[in-house]
Design a protein around this nucleic acid. Structure first.
Lengths: 150, 150
DNA sequence: CCTGACGCCGAATAACTATGCAGCAGCACG
DNA sequence: CGTGCTGCTGCATAGTTATTCGGCGTCAGG
């Protein structure tokens, strides 16, 4: 129960701006969790989130940002199977696959929640992958190319 | 006055655990600054500190450590000189400039490492600017429009 | 000297978060 | 069973932070 709820909190927080615990409580309710602000306060402490003063949103720290081990194996396999080419333009990567391969690959990438990856947009055979900056883009490129070769 | 106080806040926060704004207020008093919690709240927001949930201490973010002070003045000037229009679509901003203005403006924006800005892609007279979320986009829009008018 | 605009600030207060306490499982042991 | 222990939770409230409102000083233009 608690573990599951906390993982949903992590996901919510990484994907949209959550600016208060009541806010979080409401979104959890939308996913079938009932938890009071008190419980969420404790969850947030255990998850070691931080609250940005600039906009009040909660954020994961580096320690919690490492993706789940299972997801990494999945994305690794998906990259090996689908990825055909990578082009980098600053902090954007354009990934090419065979026709129809973009959706499953993008899904796997999203699930992995790689810290360098801000988000993806997938068409049919092309994915636009957005990283935080060019350096991160290069890292992801190297990572993926390694997986594609292996 | 304000600048000086804020730099002292940064120093205090990096060297010892400060867990509340009243705490900070007391320590500032020890160094000859008199500021209420309200003022400190505003300072902390401007300094873009984050509060760790784990222990409640304030912490600097990468951007406050990395961003050079000159960069903000530069981007300010660049916005005033080049920016002609801003359109927002959720967390994306489309910035228009006169022909040829996109590259230098994007460069200045990148250098400033604004925390709300994830990245930019510049063409000749158009920049796609990616922010973390719509709220951040609105802030950046207001910020830039203010600079463009000034 | 006005006057308006602007930036900074404090007091009060609204909004948000942490925590002491008590209740309720579940579980191990006698 | 009964008892004690542990982990998790909600309620109430204490503690902390953000914001609103209004005042003050500065500066530029009239």
């Amino acid at each position: 129960m608690k573990r599951y709820r906390q993982s949903v909190i992590l996901e919510l927080v990484t994907h949209e701006p959550i600016c208060s615990q009541d806010d979080l409580s409401r979104r959890l309710r939308g996913r079938g969790f009932h938890a009071t602000q008190a419980t969420i306060s404790r969850d947030i402490k255990e998850l070691q989130l931080v609250k940005r003063a600039a906009d009040g949103a909660y954020e994961r720290t580096a320690s919690t940002t490492a993706g789940r081990p299972g997801a990494e194996a999945t994305v690794r396999r998906a990259v090996g199977e689908y990825l055909r080419r990578v082009d980098q333009v600053q902090q954007l990567l354009v990934l090419r696959t065979d026709p129809g391969g973009a959706q499953p690959l993008a899904l796997a990438i999203d699930r992995a929640e790689l810290p360098e990856v801000v988000g993806t947009v997938a068409g049919d055979d092309t994915i636009l992958l957005i990283t935080r900056h060019a350096r991160a883009g290069r890292e992801v490129t190297r990572l993926f190319e390694g997986w594609a070769r292996g």
